[in-house]
C-alpha cells in the first residue's frame, strides 16, 4: 500500500488531482443529506427549500403528534418495520451461519445452492416480490407480514449473509478446529468454544446487514406485507402527498436511528476484537 510514497516523500501531481476528485465526490454524496438535516429544523412558516424562515423543532412535533399534513400513520409503520426487521435479522443470522458452516467442506448440491443465492440476489426485486405474491394468490393464502413479508425479505438478506460467511470463513484457520478435535471436543463444544468466538464479529455483521437491509427493502416487500405500510413505503407515500419539511424531519430521525445502529455494531465488533487480541496476547 501507499507505494508511490515509499520512494519519494514528495507527492506527485496525480495525488492532488485524485484527492480533489475524492473530495468532490464526498460533497456530491453528502451535500443533499446536509441540506435535508438543516431544513428539518425549518421554522413553522418555512418551506421545502432555502432560505430558512427561523429555526424550530415544529416539524418534529408535527411528526410525533401525527396531526394533519397528509401524514398517514408513521408510528405504526415504524413499529411494523422494526418488527419485520428484527424477525428477518434473527432468521438471516441463524440460516446464513448454518449454511456458511456447511460450505467448509464439499458436499453434493453446494453449487446449486450457491447459484440459487446469486440468482436470488441479482433477480430484479419486483420480479421476486411479484412471484411470491402470485404464489400466495394461487394457493389461496393471504399475504401477511410474518409469512410472505419475512419470506420476501429473506430472499434479499440471505445471499448477503452467505457471502459474509464466505468472507469470514475464508479467513478462518481450520487448524484451530483440528486442534480442538484432537483434544476430544464434541461438535457442539467446537462450535460453542472455538468457531463461534472467532466468527462472532462476522455473525454480528450478518445480523446488522439483515436488520438494515430489511428495514430498507421495498421492491420485494411491498406486494407481500399485506395490511398496512412499512416505513419506506410510508415515506414513499408521503413523498407524493406531503409537501412540507415534515418529510425532512422523518429523514433526520431515520438517519439518526440507522447511524446509532451502525455505530453500536461497530463498537460491539471492535470491543470483541480488542478482547480477543488481549486474550491471545496474555
Amino acid at each position: 500500500m501507499s507505494s508511490y510514497t515509499r520512494t519519494s516523500r514528495k507527492r506527485p501531481l496525480s495525488f492532488y488531482l485524485l484527492a480533489g476528485l475524492t473530495t468532490l465526490f464526498l460533497i456530491y454524496v453528502y451535500a443533499p443529506m446536509a441540506c435535508l438535516y438543516i431544513l428539518s429544523f425549518q421554522g413553522p412558516e418555512g418551506g421545502m427549500s432555502f432560505p430558512m424562515v427561523g429555526w424550530s423543532t415544529h416539524w418534529f412535533q408535527t411528526l410525533f403528534s401525527g396531526e394533519g399534513q397528509g401524514l398517514g400513520d408513521v408510528p405504526s409503520a415504524f413499529q411494523r418495520s422494526i418488527r419485520l426487521a428484527a424477525c428477518t435479522a434473527v432468521l438471516t443470522l441463524v440460516i446464513s451461519v448454518t449454511a456458511g458452516l456447511a460450505y467448509r467442506r464439499k458436499f453434493p448440491g453446494s453449487g446449486a445452492v450457491f447459484y440459487a443465492a446469486i440468482a436470488s440476489m441479482v433477480l430484479p426485486g419486483i420480479f421476486v416480490g411479484f412471484g411470491i405474491a402470485l404464489m400466495f394468490n394461487l394457493l389461496g393464502w393471504q399475504v401477511n407480514w410474518f409469512t410472505s413479508g419475512i419470506g420476501a425479505q429473506l430472499t434479499w438478506t440471505l445471499p448477503f449473509g452467505l457471502l459474509i460467511m464466505f468472507i469470514v470463513l475464508g479467513r478462518f484457520r481450520s487448524s484451530y478446529e483440528e486442534a480442538a478435535v484432537d483434544l476430544g471436543a464434541s461438535a457442539s463444544q467446537r462450535f460453542r468454544w472455538v468457531i463461534l468466538p472467532i466468527i462472532l464479529p462476522g455473525v454480528i455483521g450478518i445480523a446488522m446487514a439483515g436488520l438494515t437491509s430489511s428495514y430498507e427493502e421495498t421492491a420485494r416487500t411491498s406486494l407481500n406485507v399485506g395490511m398496512g405500510n412499512t416505513m419506506p413505503m410510508e415515506v414513499m407515500g408521503l413523498l407524493n402527498a406531503a409537501s412540507t419539511p415534515v418529510l425532512f424531519a422523518i429523514g433526520t430521525l431515520t438517519t439518526l436511528i440507522s447511524f446509532s445502529l451502525i455505530i453500536l455494531s461497530l463498537v460491539v465488533v471492535s470491543q470483541l476484537a480488542k478482547r480477543r487480541s488481549m486474550r491471545t496476547n496474555a
Binding site: A31, P32, M33, C35, L36, L39, M48, S49, F50, T212, Y215, E216, T218, M231, P232, V235, M236, L239, L247, F248, I250, G251, T254, T255, S258, I262
Partner: peptide, 14 residues
C-alpha cells in the same frame, strides 16, 4: 446505509 426514499427526497432542496 441510509434510507433510500430519504436520500431521494434530499435532492429536492438542491
Amino acid at each position: 446505509w441510509t434510507s433510500g426514499p430519504i436520500r431521494m427526497v434530499s435532492w429536492v432542496p438542491l
